[in-house]
Design a protein around this nucleic acid. Sequence first.
DNA 1: ACATTAAGTGATT
DNA 2: AATCACTTAATGT
Length: 212
Amino acid sequence: MEKLLREQYKYIFEEDLLKEIVKEGQVRKVDQGVCMIDMGDELTHMPLILSGAIKIVDEDKEGHEYLLYYLEKGDSCAMTMNCCIGGKKSEIRAISETPVLIYMIPIQRMDDWLVRFKSWRAFVLDSYNSRLKEMLETIDTLAFHNMEQRIYKYLKDRAMVLNSPELEITHAKIANDLNTSRVVVSRLIKKLILDNKIATNRNHVKVLAFSA
DNA sequence: ACATTAAGTGATT
DNA sequence: AATCACTTAATGT
């Protein structure tokens, strides 16, 4: 387990920091589809993702979930970092999209590490940066793209994080993630099929082309 | 064979 | 693009 951590982070973190991570953190295995953090939860640890994918969602006043971004291996959670500094509670929900392996680090170590390790500072800044970029992208698709493009992007993104063009998913689930209705998804999916961008079977979507 | 769940369709707003 | 009210198709028991 420790090997996995070293493999993935040896180029990012200096040796002393890696040692401390190993000493202070602990591995956690999570099954698929588990709600790992919910809104309002106290954040006690900050995660380093070793394998798998986690989706981060928010919720509007009516209780509709919508997707913010995915976390993959090598990522951490910008939200958690934010909360560590402010001692706040989680404003988002994290659900494992695949089985997940993470390294949990107590947040008490954060302050200290930020001062002592420049590779840690760089990592935190970098996480913020890439998250911000991703958020801007999703805002962009929300604001300027129509639903058809959103569905297509959603499918492509999902194929990316799951590492396979073949997706086990229903129209209803897509609708749920994009905060629209199943009927709309079905109709737009049909268009995507006609454009040869995807192919479908019951409970199954295959992404054929990754072009825009 | 029957019930359940996923997906397709036309009409309406 | 959302919703309603069905219909049709695929699957599980």
